[in-house]
Amino acid sequence: MTIGINEFIFSATLLFLIGFMGVVFRRNTLVVYMSLELMLNAVNLALVAFSRYNQTMDGAIFVFFIMTVAAAEVAVGLAIIVMLFRKRQTISLSELNELKG
C-alpha cells in the first residue's frame, strides 16, 4: 500500500487537533507550549505534503518561515515564563489568575 496525500493530511489534522486539545485542557504552561509547537508542526507537515503533491516549491519554503517565527515566539515565551516563575513561584495556569474582574 502506498501512502498518499490523504494519509498525510489526515495525520496532520490529527496532530493539529491533539495540539489544540493540549492547549485547551492542560494546566502546565510548558505543556501548553509544547502543544502549540505540535500545532505548528502539524501545519508544517501538511505544507510539505501539499507542496510535494502539488509539485510547487512555495509550501516547502514557507515551512522555513514558520519554523523561524515559532523559534522567536518560544524565545519570548520562555523569557516571560521564567520571569513569571521568579515572581510567583508557579507556572500553573490555574494559579495564574490575578487578572479578574
Binding site: 489544540f20 502539524a42 501539499f50
Partner: peptide, 13 residues
C-alpha cells in the same frame, strides 16, 4: 496564529 496558518495551508493545498 496556528489557526491562521492551518487555514492558509488548506487554501494553498
Amino acid at each position: 496564529s496556528a489557526f491562521l496558518l492551518f487555514g492558509i495551508v488548506l487554501l494553498y493545498g
